[in-house]
Lab assay of single mutants.
Amino acid sequence: LKTAGVNTTDKEMEVLHLRNVSFEDAGEYTCLAGNSIGLSHHSAWLTVLEALEERPAVMTSPLYLEIIIYCTGAFLISCMVGSVIVYKMKSGTKKSDFHSQMAVHKLAKSIPLRRQVTVSADSSASMNSGVLLVRPSRLSSSGTPMLAGVSEYELPEDPRWELPRDRLVLGKPLGEGCFGQVVLAEAIGLDKDKPNRVTKVAVKMLKSDATEKDLSDLISEMEMMKMIGKHKNIINLLGACTQDGPLYVIVEYASKGNLREYLQARRPPGLEYCYNPSHNPEEQLSSKDLVSCAYQVARGMEYLASKKCIHRDLAARNVLVTEDNVMKIADFGLARDIHHIDYYKKTTNGRLPVKWMAPEALFDRIYTHQSDVWSFGVLLWEIFTLGGSPYPGVPVEELFKLLKEGHRMDKPSNCTNELYMMMRDCWHAVPSQRPTFKQLVEDLDRIVALTSNQEYLDLSMPLDQYSPSFPDTRSSTCSSGEDSVFSHEPLPEEPCLPRHPAQLANGGLKRR
């Protein structure tokens, strides 16, 4: 031991701790050491302190810390799992109470259905409401065949629209698609105040090879029609059969078919879209009749726009005509997947739907009320060519290029400059510069009032120099000039209409 001194630092001082000593042992101690050379000694003081209470040693090893962490984590996880189980049990009790009230408590799974309603004014964004509309049932219905791709499903009954099956008599087919079909039928007692009145209706139903998605689409269309409500110039929902059998959606019946066929059937002799010497046209149409058709469609679209509904496929083929020549817009409630459109795929009647699409819908897939206005301009062109085919002879690839360059279709022969300028306004490259349906209704209403009933179509000018029955994407082998976009001569082996020498072909294109 070194004694503290003047020249001794703290580091040089050493402390020796002795245990089991008493206060009597306190004092100075000297350590002597010697050898043959000499003797040396050092002294140190022993200080006795009071004994401290002994405390248990605390484990601070890493293993002990890990044990604490794992135990704490396990406890927290157990609490979370327990909370989830309690929540599930409570929510399951509430669901079972709800389904027992709906009398569908025996169901095993559900079809996820979404009601898609486009509400954005400047995009294709949609509001999806995840309302459960249908659930599968283990119960089988008697007297009705089961669908191959869709098991029997039981829908919640809506008393406002439900019609008993025994009050619906199915008739002949009116048309069909890939998985759905429409048949003519007679409904008894659609009007609650007149329970014995028989009404001719159209009934939409699924085919035998339909899938769950097809069922989902049909129900979504029905729900959309319920929500949009009734208007004179749209196909209205009349009722539905949802209980004890396949789903039947009952809508208004339009006896004169779609507008395109309606116009073609009323072309003057010699100007029909397909040469037929025995062709006997229906009643002749006046200019006022054509303007009235456009006015009614505009009114229907104005109503749909007021309900925040974007059609996305407005064309003469999707406008139906009733016995009283009332125009009714159809298929506005269809669920369309705008992100998976095949631009080169034709519709069932051979038309390319892209020829009715606005550039922003075609290139950027942006659907708005103003893109519907563009389609309405093409529909106007169809009306005043009596069912002509837009951009005849123009392949899709060429159409993309022409639209980007600002080309537009030429004025039809039997169309006034004012109406043609309306078409051109609908085809404005900037969507915000196109008229609204409200403005179109006002303009067409004024034109109808000024147009005489006696103004019949000028038969001295050809209505349509093209054969719409030909595929639109076909290139002409005998077109006049180098560019078949601006002219389209008859093919030698097929009868077509004579070309008027002083008139540019109706399907020609102009640059805006």
Rank of each mutant, 00 (worst) to 15 (best):
G171D: 06
K172T: 13
L174M: 06
E176A: 05
C178W: 06
F179V: 03
Q181L: 08
V182A: 08
V183A: 14
L184M: 12
L184V: 14
E186A: 04
G189A: 11
D191A: 08
D193N: 09
K194E: 07
N196I: 14
N196T: 10
T199A: 10
V201A: 10
V201G: 06
A202D: 02
S208T: 09
S208W: 03
D209G: 05
D209V: 07
T211K: 04
D214A: 08
D217Y: 08
L218V: 05
L218M: 11
E221V: 02
E223Q: 10
M225I: 13
M227V: 06
I228L: 15
K232R: 13
K232T: 13
G239W: 10
C241G: 07
C241F: 03
T242R: 14
Q243E: 09
L247W: 03
Y248N: 05
Y248D: 04
I250V: 07
V251L: 15
Y253C: 04
A254G: 02
K256E: 08
G257A: 09
N258H: 01
L259P: 01
L259V: 06
L263Q: 00
P268A: 03
P268R: 06
P269L: 15
G270V: 11
E272K: 13
Y273N: 04
S278T: 04
S278G: 04
N280T: 15
N280S: 11
P281R: 06
E282Q: 08
E283D: 07
E283K: 11
S286P: 07
S287A: 09
S292F: 11
V297L: 05
Y303C: 13
K308R: 13
I310T: 00
H311R: 01
R312G: 00
L314R: 01
L314Q: 01
A316G: 01
R317M: 01
R317S: 00
R317G: 00
V319F: 01
L320M: 09
V321E: 02
E323D: 14
D324E: 15
D324N: 12
N325I: 12
K328R: 15
I329V: 11
I329L: 12
F332Y: 10
G333D: 01
A335T: 02
R336G: 01
R336Q: 00
D337H: 15
D337V: 15
I338V: 09
I338L: 13
H339N: 10
D342H: 14
D342A: 14
K345R: 13
L352Q: 02
P353A: 01
K355E: 02
W356G: 01
P359L: 07
D364V: 12
R365L: 15
H369D: 10
H369R: 14
Q370R: 09
Q370P: 05
D372A: 01
V378M: 02
L379I: 08
W381S: 02
F384S: 05
T385A: 04
T385N: 08
G388A: 08
S389P: 02
Y391N: 05
Y391C: 04
G393R: 02
V394G: 02
P395R: 10
K404M: 08
E405V: 04
G406D: 03
R408P: 00
M409T: 00
D410G: 09
P412H: 00
S413C: 10
N414H: 11
C415S: 12
Y420F: 03
M422T: 09
M423I: 06
R424L: 09
D425N: 08
H428R: 10
H428Y: 07
A429V: 13
A429T: 08
A429G: 06
S432L: 10
Q433E: 05
R434K: 00
T436I: 04
F437V: 04
Q439L: 08
L440M: 05
L440Q: 01
L444M: 07
D445A: 13
D445Y: 14
R446P: 10
R446C: 11
V448L: 07
A449D: 09
T451A: 13
N453T: 08
E455Q: 10
S460Y: 07
S460A: 11
M461R: 12
L463Q: 09
L463R: 10
D464H: 11
Q465K: 08
S467P: 13
D472G: 13
D472E: 09
R474P: 06
S476T: 06
C478G: 15
C478R: 14
S479F: 15
G481V: 14
S484A: 14
